[in-house]
Amino acid sequence: MAPYLESVRSFADVPITDAGVDTVAFLEAAQGLVGLFGDADLLGSAAFSVVQSDLKSNIAKVRARYDAATAVSATLEQLVENEKGEKKRTATEGLLWLLRGLSFTCKALQNSQANKSEELAAAFNKSYEGTLKQFHNFVVKGIFSVAMKACPYRNDFYTKLAADPAGGPPATQEKLDEELNKWLAALAAIVARMEEFYEKGGHGKGF
């Protein structure tokens, strides 16, 4: 077992059809990822509260749009298309920033998985350079720099991720790697799909 990962919806279990990525399932999986930054105390740094807060805020924006227009928001693509003609596209912008935050986290953990001798701070720094940094001003860059320096030690993070909150035996490293890699691969595929959708439709203009 990989206890934390099995306690939340996996991105691998988010249905994707010809109509697009299932909105509710995606938001549930994204909420599970937010737990890494605070709720489950896995990354264990108050400095990461800015990341957690940003992800939560953008999940809420997409959720509010879904609740207000459920019939035309079953998939992320439909939700964005439906909001297109409106003056203020709050959910479209929120989803764009949510995808950026998810991409940052995904690439950081993929870096960590690919480089077993590397500390988390290095993995997150490398990811930040290639994802969020280009969208941030000087002040926000400084906040993220502090957050990444405060990353827990690699061993502490993986020990917490493998631990069973109920007190049972922890997941083996092999099982943990298997579950985490599957989770991250599915997330990366969704992010890539949605980035292409935004690019082709020009949905990110103005944000």
Rank of each mutant, 00 (worst) to 15 (best):
L176M: 10
M1A: 11
M1L: 12
E129N: 12
V24Y: 02
K160F: 07
R193S: 13
L187I: 09
I143R: 05
A30F: 01
T23D: 01
A147C: 15
K107D: 11
L27C: 05
A192P: 04
I190K: 13
T172C: 05
L27T: 03
A150I: 03
P169C: 05
I59P: 02
S145W: 05
P170W: 14
L42Q: 04
N137K: 10
L76A: 12
A189G: 13
V24K: 02
Q31T: 03
F144G: 09
N181E: 11
K116S: 15
E93F: 10
F157H: 08
V50H: 05
K107A: 11
P170V: 14
P152T: 13
I59G: 00
L180R: 05
V51P: 00
D54G: 04
T105M: 05
V80H: 03
A123Q: 01
E196W: 12
E6V: 04
P165I: 15
A69K: 11
R89F: 14
A60E: 07
L95R: 02
G202I: 15
V139M: 13
E81M: 08
V72L: 04
E86C: 12
P152V: 14
K84R: 15
K56I: 02
S7G: 00
A121S: 15
E119Q: 11
D54Y: 01
A150F: 11
V80M: 10
A46C: 05
V140F: 14
A185G: 11
N115S: 14
S49F: 08
S7W: 00
I143E: 02
D41Q: 09
S127F: 00
L36N: 00
A122F: 03
V50C: 07
E179N: 03
D54I: 06
A46D: 06
Y153K: 12
A171M: 13
R9L: 15
V21W: 00
L184I: 13
A29C: 00
A47L: 04
A71K: 02
A12F: 03
F104I: 08
F104Y: 13
A91G: 01
E129D: 13
V51N: 01
F11Q: 01
G167V: 10
T159I: 09
V72A: 05
V62C: 07
K205L: 15
T70Q: 01
V139Q: 04
F138E: 04
Y198E: 08
K88H: 14
I59A: 00
F37L: 12
D67Q: 10
F37A: 00
V139F: 12
E119Y: 06
A74C: 01
A71S: 14
W183R: 08
A122C: 01
L161G: 11
D177A: 13
T92D: 11
L102S: 04
